[in-house]
Amino acid sequence: MTRPGPHSRIRPAGTIQAVAFVAVVAVLPLITGQHWLVSLLVFTVMYAGLASAWNLLGGYAGYPALGHGAFFGVGAYAMAIGTSHLGVGGGYRPFVLIVPIAVGTALVVLPIARLLLRTRAAAFAVLSITLMFMVQTLAYNIRSLTGGSSGLIVPLAPFPAAIFERPFYYAMAALLALTLAVCWVVRTSKLGLALNAVRDDEDRARGLGVQTELVKLVAFAVSAGLTAAFGAVWAYYITFLYPGFAIDPLLALGAILMAFLGGRRTLWGPVVGAALIGPAQQYFAYRFGASQLYLVAYAALFLLVIYLLPEGIVPSLARRLRRLRRASPAAATHDQVATDSIFSAGDLG
């Protein structure tokens, strides 16, 4: 089994990927003026970020977190309360709130994370989703703050109708870039190695002197903070919050599905997964309505991915490429080195 070593150097192939990715993401919404298409892009980029943020804890550290809907909802409600109660103002000003919301969520979550991380595996999965149900109940019950089941309205952003989605899209895209940068830093640092060790054998890692508690806490808090940041942008975009909708068990499941499809524990896997499933998800929801057959299609897709592509697309492709290259040693040219290094960032364990 190969494990990613600390890739401390910034390699040319990696730089090319990053630049190409930023260019594509930056240009995408300019191609079309269709509102539903741009809206679909907003959600797809958001899910790419959510899946990448989940990957920090669920992928690298191997802690099966199912409750990220809680942090998303906290970010969303914080944005709504900030804009409607605190009088932050309209226009672009609410975007400034994203920073304190993300940092605040990451800090507030620390004591809870410390408690949850005392459990592992199935118990952790159960507690993480239980936490989400707790936050949802709070959102229903603290009516003075959240409006309870009648919901909370965020003031509509005063952007021109023709390009209404663009500020939200670029906010999501910037957060996605930040999330990927964080993932990259984690992967290439000692923190990533420590998280790998936690996933492989936590007790042995601790015995060997890895600061398991600390690295788990960092992964949890950063993952939660980033998720809250996406929730904040989403709230300003959606303009209406309802507990069952802002704090949704399906949100984490969607992120997990995308991470699995693309390849969890890889840098680009969650993005690939989101690019494939995000649009399909929006289409299903639009075509079949928010429940019923949408849920059936979603579940079917989920089972198909787990059974047919348990490793995910990026690791499978990387393996195929490597096998191809091994079959023809003469073809080991610069191109091959470049294509290989695209995927070498992926953990093929």
């Binding site: 199912l66 999965a125 499941l253 979603y298 579940a299 089972l303 348990p310």
Partner: peptide, 23 residues
């Protein structure tokens, strides 16, 4: 491939059954 995947499979199955029941 591990029991935690089973948890996700059953969760997914449950959501599918809910979809059928809602329908």
């Amino acid at each position: 491939s591990g029991a935690e995947l089973g948890l996700l499979v059953l969760y997914g199955l449950g959501i599918g059954i809910q979809g059928v029941l809602d329908f």
